[in-house]
């Protein structure tokens, strides 16, 4: 409870004594590259395989002459949009980006780089953390969209290559009974998770005390706490919006 209060105060501190818009713009672009561009490869690999595996396992479970094969891709589609792309990828994102943010800020804290900023009169919380959160809010939804496409593509390739269903059926299933709201829901989740991962990891890193060992602990605890927050938020959003 106390740490939630500290977390909220930390968030509030980002909006006092701010630097110029140009400064934040440049920093946000830099962070976007780190957070977004550098995560493309891992996202591509994980999501393609997830789509492929989901297709195989759904096909394995649905072998029955009474169920048309396009149901397989329909299931793959809904799982991808509702859970795999936004939520499971958020766990991957926490592991990649969250640990990176906490490690970077933790190192800056213990090597007094944060003090150096403060001595120059810069609000270090705002200068360092705000660009990371904005970059995360911009880039993570884009990564989720990419992951969604690649997951469906991975499923398609598996379906065709292993012959569990035809490409035509796969596409038919993907289009069948498509609910547009699910995509919006996925993007809302993506924004929530993007914020949680960036903010929690920044908080953990920023308040690191001690030495290199503690930086490692901060990284670990950033990932653990981000994952818990993601899953809790996932549950709450599903209850609220579905």
């Amino acid at each position: 409870m106390e740490s939630i209060g500290k977390f909220l105060i930390f968030m509030g501190r980002m909006f006092i004594r701010m630097e110029s818009f140009g400064t934040y713009f440049k920093l946000t672009v830099d962070e976007s590259i780190k957070v977004g561009y550098n995560s493309i490869l891992i996202f591509a690999i994980v999501s393609t395989f997830m789509g492929a595996v989901t297709t195989l396992q759904t096909a394995y479970n649905l072998i029955s002459p009474f169920i048309p094969s396009y149901v397989i891709s329909l299931v793959v589609r809904d799982m991808t949009i509702l859970e795999l792309a936004p939520t499971i990828m958020a766990i991957v994102y926490a592991g990649k980006v969250g640990s990176n943010i906490a490690g970077e800020l933790g190192t800056m804290r213990i090597t007094e780089q944060i003090d150096a900023l403060e001595v120059m009169g810069i609000n270090s919380a705002s200068y360092l953390v705000l660009p990371k959160i904005i970059a995360s809010l911009i880039m993570y939804p884009l990564l989720v969209i990419l992951a969604g496409y690649l997951s469906l593509l991975g499923g398609y390739m598996t379906a065709v290559l292993t012959g569990v269903m035809t490409g035509y059926d796969y596409i038919y299933g993907i289009r069948y009974d498509f609910v547009e709201f699910n995509v919006k829901f996925a993007l809302i989740k993506a924004l929530a998770f993007a914020f949680l991962v960036a903010a929690i990891s920044s908080y953990k890193g920023y308040f690191t005390k001690g030495g290199a060992l503690e930086v490692g602990q901060s990284s670990t605890s950033a990932v653990t706490n981000s994952c818990i927050a993601i899953l809790t938020a996932d549950y709450l959003l599903a209850k609220l919006l579905l």
């Binding site: 190192t107 800056m108 090597t111 007094e112 780089q113 003090d115 150096a116 001595v119």
Partner: peptide, 11 residues
């Protein structure tokens, strides 16, 4: 101006 113990240069 301040010089920190390890230099505190921005990595």
């Amino acid at each position: 101006g301040m010089l920190f113990q390890g230099g505190a240069l921005f990595d």
